[in-house]
Design a protein around this nucleic acid. Structure first.
Length: 567
RNA sequence: GGCUCUAUGGUCAAGCGGUCAAGACUCCGCCCUCUCACGGCGGCAACUCGGGUUCGAAUCCCGAUAGAGUCACCA
């Protein structure tokens, strides 16, 4: 590369660069070629994709992570490839104990599993280490190579100096950063550097960028790249002397990303669109290292409507619904969350689901091309709708398992409510109400709501929440006693309701609501009001699934007992 | 401010030069119906704005506008 037209050009000879590299990295043992040999291209079939998730070890996995992880997982496993977990702990401030286990567990809960990488106890795979803090020598090796080639250099700028530079740049309305003439350490001679080193001054390793944004617009170099989600991308090349290795010797994200994804033979990098602006840095690094960049898949941000009415990126701090915990706490079934995520991940998924209502979700052919590239608003109403449909396809037994597991974790007081747990078969029957047949009920959305829905089935949660309907309140006791008198638990549904119609008619209510609507003056009310009285006596609420079915599950004695209180 | 991305109903979103501009969710109405759900039918509701190119533009080009992202020794 020729830097003659750049202020702060490299004043050092190739020999000096070599010496500098040795001076800076005396302990590097392996050569780049050694690493290439250690991590050879993967023996995978044509078209198999290698993807990775690179969370920082805060242990906090949010919906955005899950969104991306899902894309990673599908891409890899659909193609017979590999999905690996790499812990990106280059920022020691963020480390949280046990984070790896939390990350793996949270993702597994949603059906996302890794083939390779970090695990709570050690590592799995031949391309490790998968923890960036343990890859020091690898980064050192390639930083050394760049220094030796004059593509990187030590920078001794202090925080204060950088602050001054920034202030100056801002005053002059220039792009802030260390580049061009502001990169003062670029032009240090070997002697000056060794002097500073000897004095023990802290330094970082910076990329010596080729870019020059101060050129007239026409002359600024641009690069083009094909993004698997966004299509052709065109932007100016990087001109910032980005930090590669921090003063503590740990790499920045940029450097670690390029080195790791090359050495781990990642084929597809799925990451949020917030990375787009630093893509030029990564491209320059891949070029200088002589490597082929991966296929980038920059996903849209999850958005929400802010207080000002505008869309904005979901934020961890302000938006509880971004936390996966939020869904677990409410008791959304993981299958529902997956289904919903897929509907916003791939625009043709809903159509596919309509055509294949019973198919396993993994049979859907996920593609990056069908991923939206504008920010999707998170829509709770839609999630709920999707969830209703998904839960319909889950057996009562599995639903009971799920509900019980949820209750143990989030509603321990229900565990002591013995009636809730006592009779497993009973719970399953309750959960299965009205779900058979061609027009099944879709009552269940999430665990918390389900408990609320079915609470009246359990004596210690049963309360009468509503008043008797005005039309029939005066006759309530009479209705109940007649109902009790005629009650036969063995009645089929038809004869059962026939009796209610009879009671209604005898007491001056229309046996058919339509008659009442036509001639309201002729009746006190209609059979609906009469059955509402029974409903409230039995369930404590005016709205519920079919009373006959409920009575069958409640059993005769409990049915009679609840009714008697109102007779 | 620089750079970048994005722009179809309230939300998600088809559409790739000729469509009465799909569909889903929400909301409303009707039907079914003992309530509620479910289901069925129907309805409200959209191409950001200018210029071009073209016989013809939501679709292609240019510009404006708006929104978003990003400009750290965080990731």
């Amino acid at each position: 590369m020729n830097n003659e037209n750049t202020a702060g050009a490299c004043l050092q000879s190739p020999q000096d660069c070599q010496k500098l590299a040795e001076m800076l990295f005396p302990h590097v043992e392996k050569s780049p070629a050694d690493y290439e040999a250690l991590y050879p291209p993967r023996p995978l079939p044509e078209g198999a994709k290698v993807t990775r998730l690179g969370p920082s070890p805060t242990g906090f996995i949010h919906l955005g992570n899950l969104f991306g992880a899902f894309a990673d997982e599908r891409l890899a496993h659909q193609s017979g490839g590999v999905f690996l977990l790499r812990i990106e702990d280059t920022d020691d401030k963020r480390y949280v104990e046990g984070a790896t286990a939390i990350i793996i567990d949270s993702l597994r809960f949603f059906g996302i599993n890794f083939d390779e990488g970090a695990t709570p106890d050690g590592e799995k795979g031949a391309y490790g280490s998968y923890t960036q803090s343990q890859r020091g020598p690898v980064y050192q090796c390639f930083a050394k190579k760049l220094v030796a080639e004059g593509q990187a250099y030590p920078c001794f700028l202090t925080e204060a100096e950088i602050g001054e530079i920034r202030a100056e740049q801002e005053a002059a309305k220039l792009t802030p950063g260390i580049y061009g003439k502001w990169a003062r350490s670029r032009s240090l001679s070997l002697a000056e550097i060794s002097q500073k080193l000897a004095a023990g001054l802290p330094y970082v390793i910076r990329l010596r960028s080729d870019g020059d944004m101060s050129l007239p617009e026409e002359q600024i170099r641009r690069f083009e790249i094909e993004d698997a989600i966004r299509g052709k991308l065109s932007m100016p090349v990087n001109d910032q002397d980005t930090v590669l290795l921090k003063a503590n010797g740990i790499p920045t994200y940029h450097f670690a990303h390029v080195v790791d994804d090359h050495l781990m033979r990642t084929t597809h990098v799925v990451r949020g669109a917030e990375w787009l602006p630093s893509l030029p840095i990564h491209i320059e690094l891949f070029e200088k290292l002589g490597w082929q960049p991966p296929v980038y898949c920059h996903t849209a941000q999850l958005m929400k409507i802010g207080e000002d009415g505008n869309k904005r990126k979901l934020s961890k701090r302000k938006d509880p619904e971004l936390s996966l915990d939020y869904y677990r706490r409410l008791g959304y079934h993981p299958a529902a969350v997956r289904e919903y995520l897929l509907t916003i991940l791939n625009s043709n998924f809903e159509e596919w689901r309509l055509a294949n209502p019973e198919a396993d979700i993994d049979e859907f052919a996920f593609t990056t091309e069908k991923m939206s590239n504008s920010g999707a608003l998170f829509d709770l109403a839609k999630l709920n709708d999707v969830s209703k449909e998904v839960l319909l396809h889950i057996s009562a037994a599995d639903l009971a398992d799920f509900l019980l597991a949820w209750a143990k974790e989030f509603r321990p007081e229900l565990v002591s409510a013995t009636s809730f747990f006592a009779d497993r078969a009973y719970l399953e029957r309750v959960l299965d109400i009205g779900r058979a047949g061609s027009k099944p009920r879709k009552d269940h959305i999430y665990a918390q709501q389900m408990v609320e829905n079915i609470s009246y089935f359990f004596d210690d949660m049963f309360t009468v929440e509503e008043e008797m309907p005005a039309e029939a309140a005066a006759d309530a006791a009479e209705i109940i006693s007649r109902y009790l008198a005629s009650y036969d638990h063995a009645d089929d549904q038809e004869t059962w309701f026939g009796k209610i119609r009879q009671i209604a008619a005898d007491l001056g209510y229309a046996a058919k609501p339509k008659d009442y609507k036509k001639n309201p003056q002729d009746y006190k009310g209609h059979v609906g009001h009469v059955s509402t009285v029974i409903r409230i006596a039995l369930m404590g609420r005016s709205q519920s699934p079919d009373v006959w079915e409920i009575q069958q599950i409640l059993g005769e004695s409990r049915t009679r007992e609840r009714l008697s209180r109102f007779a």
